[in-house]
Design a protein around this nucleic acid. Structure first.
Lengths: 213, 213, 213, 213
DNA sequence: AATGAATGAGAGTTCATTCAT
DNA sequence: TATGAATGAACTCTCATTCAT
């Protein structure tokens, strides 16, 4: 996978200019925007929003400082674009595994497994989404609200199929999401001292007992 | 309880100058330090670390700008002091209820209940601890590592008393902590649309099934 | 009269490319230049020289940014072209009425009346010429020096015809011009709370007494 | 007269911090503010508002860049402070001569004489007030509206004393002000090729004939 | 211990102008 | 001739920290 695809690749059908970016009209413009977005992901991931600088982004992208403002209105606006893009990436990477699962518990197990694996490979995404809580609260809320929504739908579908208890609710969904996020932080970002498999097995067993009818 | 005690009260055996603060030698100095710490909690809570300013803190505290540096070396150092102090506050407020519980599940239920109730009353604490991930990662890690530690000890003790499964582990502890944090965010900070009781009951039931022998 | 003529119309014998503009060779080029000049008059009039931007001008003109430099060397040079053009417009609109007057006082009356009426219809011209004091002092001086020159010639001619005092001088001319400009500002640009007629009558009476032999 | 007095001297009873400046609490602060105001008058006078830079002001004042923002919120705010201050200076320098005059015509003659003399000595003030038309229109309007007001009052008082025609009006006042301003520009700022006396005599004679009953 | 003025590095942003297509 | 992306100097403003009083 080419580097640029990480941020705006064809695999996910996301447009080249997510969020607030101005759409380039020429091929050269498309290349520049792509370079800026990639560089921004690295810069924000390494230094965090406030330590990051526009000049750091353009230096990494190999373009002039002013070129940044050809595509974005402000530092905030790249960050917003990035958060939305990464939120979508998490969804796109976790989704297939979940949908391929044979039952409700297997689905949640797959979700956790994919998620922890994904954050191991993209630690900067974890950081960027988390920092959105302070920089772009709206996107942050949206990300987690949407994620919880998806989980509760899966749980309810499982209940209807008789695989889970009838009283599964939003509370369970937030609990599951909270587990995933913190397990991702602990076993994905901070330390990889435990196989993802093992963590997923442990949690799957826990959920099976806790949520079965 | 007087306001100052929230940050550095005698009830919790924390000294008046937690973390990096320089210890004042006179009564007047103690009052000034207290005022600065209180003001810092408000300023960081309202504006976040980077938006917060030293002059904002001293203005709220009603002292001169320069006085800040009589007690702290830098902006980072007040923040560190505050994070540790608040981490201790969470522990101090949640601890008694947990210890008073009659069994392992009741203890976790009490922990969640106390925690959500606490963050409802102190939303700024949530923000300050969370932002530490970016400003003072060491304190952030320490906070969650310590909290997970305490949970795993409780779970193991419960297992030894035969109330929980024998295989409870660090993974379960991080899962429980993750639930608590996100339920606190959802039902404590963002919206209070569900009674704490109900949330706690739901999770207690879930844990009982999931973790019983 | 078509809109473009306001800036570079055939009626006044001014070429399509006044001042610093490069002369277009094709019909298409002439249209583009005309569009840019019109747009510049609006942009400078609305926002003033420094707030105005080349991109604002080309946006209004509906042409690409780069096209601007096909016709002008710099921001200063459009402004210069515009100032000269507008200076000529004032002259062209005020002149006929003055020349048609039957005596010296009537001529000055007509000059004021035409001038105030003209600035009411073209408030942006006022601003553009005035701002030239800071942006293009040479054009500014030239505009007022030329205007004063014309006034002093009229006054001297009136004196020779025995309609005015013999000692009319440059000082009187500058006084008359100053009146006109400030009355134009007050009753033309700022507020139209008094009929032009009345203002002109008052001043004509004042001049008759002040300048008659 | 010391240099600082030009901007904020005791002679005119204007405070040391006109307009938008923050009041310093120490003697050292007062000195710094005074240096910044003086430097700003020179910088704006020489380079005009847009070419002037804060760093140019602080360099001239011999203080650090940041010190500017100890006393002013923005470039606009010093400019506003300066415009108001200078408007007051013109008034203060012209007023005494006018009040000391023995009749209405002598008063206007004195006003013009003082004004032209003043702008010869303070050409930068002329420029600063004029540029306010574009930078701070409110102050500009206020300056001329107030000045016209004062003139119309003088004329009406002269009429009541039987020295001037009964129908003197706002229109005459604006005419007189316009003369003064343009004569100041021509014989004060641009060129000193004619003695102030002579200009004043010419205009006084003109006014006497034009405005006498 | 307290004050508040002074400092200056550093950041984001603008936009006239150039240039490859 | 027209396009619009690219450039980078220059500017305003912020604020943690220092220091003289």
């Amino acid at each position: 996978m080419r580097k640029a695809d990480r941020v705006a690749g064809p695999a996910t059908s996301r447009s080249i200019a997510p969020g607030d970016a101005k759409t380039p009209r020429t091929e050269r413009g498309r290349r520049t925007l792509r370079a800026i977005l990639d560089a921004a992901a690295v810069e924000f991931g390494e230094r965090g929003f406030h330590e990051a600088s526009i000049s750091g982004i353009t230096r990494r992208a190999g373009v002039a400082l002013g070129s940044f403002y050809t595509y974005f209105d402000s530092k905030d606006s790249v960050f917003r674009a990035l958060v939305r893009d990464m939120s979508a990436q998490v969804r796109d990477h976790v989704g297939p595994g979940v949908r391929a699962a044979t039952d409700a518990i297997a689905a949640e197990r797959a979700g956790l497994e994919q998620f922890v694996g994904f954050v191991r490979r993209h630690k900067e995404i974890y950081r960027i989404i988390d920092e959105a809580e302070f920089v772009d609260p709206a996107s942050y809320r949206l990300h987690y609200a949407t994620t919880a929504e998806r989980i509760v739908e899966r749980l309810r579908a499982g209940a209807q199929r008789g695989e889970l208890r009838d009283d599964v609710s939003e509370v369970h969904a937030w609990a599951v999401m909270g587990m995933n996020v913190f397990l991702g932080l602990r076993y994905g970002v901070w330390d990889e001292d435990r196989p993802v498999d093992e963590v997923a097995d442990t949690i799957a067993d826990f959920l099976r007992r806790g949520l079965s009818p």
